[in-house]
């Protein structure tokens, strides 16, 4: 900084000279930063390649097809005259139906979002619009601190305390169930959705508020008709991040969901998610076996689901952002 200041007073030629030296250093620094940035992209890409490579044999390998075909992973199996979706990989006849697992993941994620979205968005609205600055300075870090709670702790809490409360309150048939796991997950997703939504709300220009109030709307009208719609893309992004966090979370659901691969929509029943299945079974499988490849296929599918959902919402958000700026 001082170099730049002193160079201003000297001649133009010297300024160039002075500039050249930091430039070389800057270039190296820039190259290093680019390399590090690329490294993270490359490693993510390599992980994808690896997962894909281990997952693809499900489609063509004869070793896998001896035990399961891609179609058998989705279609029900006829057992004693009625159709059943079964995940029983360690068995005389291994059964790898992925329907109960994805349904399980969906169930806990929906429960988590149903609970986390309203509460975190409401908290964000309060923090950004109503709270005094001192209150806000206390609230925001406090809520964001929740994100720092290790998921094993959240899972253990759900397993020991939450499960008993919920069974007492709702009389659920299984003590560990989709509701318990979903609420445990909400604990992990709330801070994500809150933090992003709050930032989005605060990024709405002050002029929107003053204009809305000047036009005679009440503060509530201004919030519902002007500020929330303007912050919607950001809130949407927060919800998406929360969705990704919830569907990808493993430890909480391993501990709190009971891990029974059932196909029903009863939230009081135990449920088994994709992530929990991978985490619990991958340690034991023989590398290269059908079970091994099916587990990787599960991982690849899970990635695909989150990717597609992300792309769709990103597009929707983009469109809403455009229409917002268009109507301005």
């Amino acid at each position: 900084m001082s170099d730049a200041a002193s160079s201003k007073s000297s001649g133009a030629a010297r300024t160039l000279d002075l500039r050249r030296r930091p430039r070389r250093f800057e270039r190296i620094a820039e190259a290093a930063i680019v390399a590090v940035a690329l490294l993270s992209i490359v490693s993510v890409a390599l992980i994808l390649v690896f997962v894909g490579k281990e997952a693809l044999p499900v489609l063509y390998s004869s070793v896998v097809h001896e035990e399961v075909t891609p179609l058998a992973m989705i279609l029900p199996r006829e057992i004693n005259g009625h159709a059943a979706y079964l995940w029983q990989p360690v068995s005389e006849i291994p059964k790898y139906n992925i329907v109960p697992l994805f349904l399980g993941s969906l169930k806990v994620t929906v429960v988590a979002l149903l609970f986390a979205v309203p509460t975190s968005v409401a908290a964000a609205v309060y923090c950004a619009e109503y709270a005094s600055s001192r209150m806000r300075e206390f609230l925001k870090p406090a809520i964001e601190l929740m994100a720092g709670v290790p998921s094993v702790v959240a899972g253990f809490f759900a397993l020991v305390v939450l499960a008993s409360w919920i069974q007492r309150a709702f009389g659920t048939e299984h003590r560990l169930n989709a509701m318990v796991a979903g609420l445990g997950l909400a604990f992990a997703t709330c801070p994500v959705i809150f933090s992003v939504s709050e930032d989005a709300l605060r990024a709405v220009p002050q002029s929107y508020r003053t204009a809305a109030l000047a036009l005679g709307s009440t503060p509530t009208q201004a919030l519902l008709r002007v500020i929330l719609p303007a912050a919607l893309p950001g809130i949407g992004a927060g919800v998406m991040l929360g969705f990704g966090r919830a569907i990808g979370e493993t430890l909480i659901v391993v501990l709190a969901s009971g891990n029974a691969a059932l196909v029903d929509l009863n939230l009081g029943h135990s449920t088994r998610t994709v992530t929990a299945t991978i985490a619990q079974e991958l340690g034991e499988v023989v590398v290269g076996s059908a079970h091994y490849h099916v587990l990787f296929a599960l991982g690849a599918l899970l990635f695909l689901v989150t990717f597609v959902v992300n792309v769709i919402t990103e597009r929707a958000l983009h469109r809403s952002r455009q229409s917002l700026s268009g109507s301005k």
């Binding site: 059943a84 029983q88 109960p100 009971g258 135990s270």
Partner: peptide
């Protein structure tokens, strides 16, 4: 096989 409802 174990019953599907077995919590593991």
């Amino acid at each position: 096989d174990f019953a599907a409802a077995t919590q593991t």
